[in-house]
Nucleic acid binder design. Structure first.
Lengths: 200, 200
DNA sequence: AAATAATGTTTACACTGATAACATGCCTGA
DNA sequence: TCAGGCATGTTATCAGTGTAAACATTATTT
């Protein structure tokens, strides 16, 4: 008989009926797969296969495919936020930090094209979430927006600041998309030239 | 016997084995369908069904699905170019015309969300086509780029002009995408505020 | 220990894009 | 004229997808 695993939930590589932490494993495999091709080529069955589990097991943890993709998006936003914080931390506050974040935005998109697209297409996603009040760290967009806002003093009227914020975001997002879609070469020099001149 | 149609190829609404001009009909139906939902929900079979033809008839006119989508993109670019020309024609030359085209860009995207996305995702599409030399009218992007270029005199160095061109395109494209994805409300006032201030 | 809840599996279905083999009808060359 | 040839359409079939239902196995609670 197979000896019982030392205590309880230690994962061995044996095939066990219960996976242990399938939900996380599925997200993991999903993130791994989405970086290897377009998002529309991502199939539940392949994720399940890679996790060593039957296709329909997914439905014990996610109501449908969209929910799994949503989980991928959430994880993506966390990572993007982390990238933003890092960029912000490693540069002087003010315009410097702002430019660094703009570059980080584009670089993240280029590093994870399908995930980034997915995150953006998920229009009900955490982008338009309520202000960062909960303990959960604010998502990337929120961090970016805050940084932009803090650039302009409170003396400038609200509407003007909103337009500026929107302009900055549009510029960076547009550049990222154009490069992602291959309409503009993804040259670091171009990113720098466009982003660093974005506060006007 | 059914009376012969007056001469030859006049389309009646009878069910005839040979459609007449199926290729155009498929594109037509495709354009009709893509405006009613996301592009990934577009199926060859539904297009064929709506055209009153069997699913595999499509393959007599397009090698595969991507080819049909490519045809939709091409038609989309023609329409976009037409919108640009109209915007350009109905405003004073110079910055006025440029702003009008920027607004037209965003409005086109908002009016045909899925088609616009498809046109952009088609990275090998006519966007990066050779300069507008042939009789075929230049595609929309080319027109836009030309207009941007003509805004800045030849005295400004090439590289500076390229950056400006890229900034303008990025700004407009980014705004369009953000509104399309629901991250920014699609308010005409916002479009105007962002676009009309884009030449800096 | 027995009952129950949580988690995975097998089976099945409707849908998709695509290929192969067959049917129909337009058109041209003798 | 009319007999083929060829463009165009059809049916049958296949592998792959997302998802639901019924069943099996393990973990947890009483």
């Amino acid at each position: 008989m197979p000896e019982k695993d030392n205590t309880v939930n230690i994962n061995s590589e044996k095939n066990r009926y219960h996976h242990g932490d399938l939900r996380s494993a599925l997200i993991e495999e999903g993130l791994k797969l989405i970086d290897t091709g377009p998002a529309e080529a991502l199939s539940l069955r392949e994720i399940a296969r890679n996790a060593g589990v039957s296709a329909t097991a997914v439905y014990r943890h996610f109501p449908d495919k969209a929910a799994l993709l949503g989980a991928l998006c959430l994880e993506g936003h966390h990572r993007m936020a982390a990238a933003f914080r890092k960029a912000m931390a490693s540069s002087a506050p003010g315009v410097e930090a702002f430019n660094a974040m703009g570059r980080a935005y584009v670089h993240f998109a280029l590093a994870h094209p399908s995930l980034f697209r997915l995150m953006m297409a998920q229009s009900a996603g955490p982008v338009s979430a309520p202000p960062p009040s909960a303990g959960e760290p604010a998502d990337g967009m929120q961090i970016l927006v805050n940084a932009i806002d803090s650039l302009f003093g409170a003396d400038t009227p609200q509407s003007a600041r909103e337009v500026r914020r929107l302009k900055a975001w549009s510029l960076v997002h547009g550049l990222a998309m154009l490069m992602l879609d291959g309409h503009v070469p993804s040259e670091p020099a171009l990113i720098e030239a466009v982003v660093d001149a974005s506060v006007l």
